[in-house]
């Protein structure tokens, strides 16, 4: 399995109005409008599932206050300092993301 993306996003499909600004704005182009309609009859935005950097640009371009939640891979926890191998790898990738 490929390394997890640095970021992740969750779109509330019932709050999304399908304006498409996030799709247009996303630098790594990892958003799309779903072909199916939501309850309000619009095509809601959707994360393709790969490539999100967690930059947060879609969040600021989205006119709905709570339609998009942006996540980033958690920064390494304390054991990193003492050299937990797995955490260290994660920590490095996170640092690169910044």
């Amino acid at each position: 399995m490929a390394a997890p993306a640095r970021g992740n996003i969750l779109i509330d499909t019932e709050e999304c109005k399908g304006c498409g600004l996030c799709v247009e704005s996303c630098p790594p182009e990892c958003l799309e409008l779903l072909p199916e309609l939501n309850a309000y009859g619009v095509h809601p935005a959707h994360y393709t599932g790969a490539g999100c950097t967690g930059c947060g640009i879609c969040f600021y371009c989205c006119p709905e206050p709570g339609a998009i939640t942006v996540y980033r891979l958690a920064p390494p926890t304390k054991p990193l300092v003492h050299g937990d191998a797995q955490d260290k790898v994660q920590g490095e990738s996170h640092a690169a993301a910044l």
Partner: peptide, 10 residues
Amino acid sequence: AGYEVTHSKS
């Protein structure tokens, strides 16, 4: 999966 919220509804 190890992600933290960075931007969400205020």
